[in-house]
Design a protein around this nucleic acid. Structure first.
Lengths: 153, 153
DNA sequence: AATATATTTGCATAATTATGCATAATCTTG
DNA sequence: CAAGATTATGCATAATTATGCAAATATATT
């Protein structure tokens, strides 16, 4: 297992921990709070982390604070989407996802939302989606990722 | 009635409308969108409005966009209800709440739910609500409480 | 292991948002 | 209606956040 990946995970976990246990008003404050907990990073990195974690800055009576955005149906959605997929396959240049009739649009939107997928974009018809990878070299990997995210084989 | 209050309400309504009907990425874009709809304002004012409306900026696959924060959130409901109220006043026997057209029912339900209010009940029409206090002696106090709960003056 | 690919990070800075202050608009009270 | 008080707004700018780029680190391939 990658040391780096562990670190990122640790940092993300710490961020979630901090923003849910205390009022964090801005990113420099977060930098300091993390430092106290033994994790050093910079405002720039945290800005990216917050985006990845889907954290929002909400107005409250005490000021703008960071909060984890409401999740919950995410896992559920995943299941439903997975059930609509027939197959995921690729050739040398694109990935093709087959779905049950009329389901392609919804699945395509879901795939688009997974911003940890290295895709340029998707086009969905009625029962077929074309996924354009960032690079043709990533096709295999991306197919794997899609399958992993959706928990299918 | 105040011209100004109407304008603010209109602007707030427009903001909610715009951010829920299209992707608004930043405040200058919002300024332009509002202008097209005939409401002129500045980035500074909109910044304040967004805070008042409890709007959040959430990360999505297409970038950071503004969204009304999760419904069901109590604080939020409060904001929205408060937005619909024009005035709260009383005479020697009842309290009258004036709202924007068609909003009275919703506001009345909200007031009913506040069980720390010393009221016997409410009757709501289209834009007016009559609130019956437990005792006429509590009218002043109850008006105050309503205003405090909703954070209005 | 060596080389090639890909990812993460920090720095510097651009982009964006929030706010103090002065002014204008509105409201209140006499 | 006038005078004073309050609230809303815009301007200028401070505060904060996001990002291009290059270096560092990690991963994959042979």
């Amino acid at each position: 297992m990658s040391k780096k990946l562990e670190d990122i995970h640790k940092r993300h976990a710490m961020i979630k921990d901090l923003i849910s246990s205390q009022e964090i008003f801005n990113q420099t404050q977060l930098v300091k709070a993390m430092k106290q907990k033994g994790i050093k990073s910079t405002q720039a990195t945290l800005s990216r982390d917050l985006t990845e974690l889907g954290v929002v800055r909400v107005p409250t009576s005490t000021g703008l604070i960071y909060k984890l955005s409401a999740t919950g149906d995410e896992t559920n959605l995943k299941y439903r989407v997975a059930e609509e997929i027939i197959s995921v396959a690729g050739n040398e240049s694109v990935i093709v996802v087959k779905t049950y009739p009329g389901r392609a649009q919804g699945v395509a939107v879901f795939i688009d939302k997974q911003n940890d997928l290295d895709t340029l974009g998707t086009i969905g018809g009625d029962d077929t989606i074309i996924v354009i990878p960032k690079s043709v070299k990533k096709i295999k990997k991306t197919i794997e990722q899609i399958k992993i995210i959706l928990g299918i084989k």
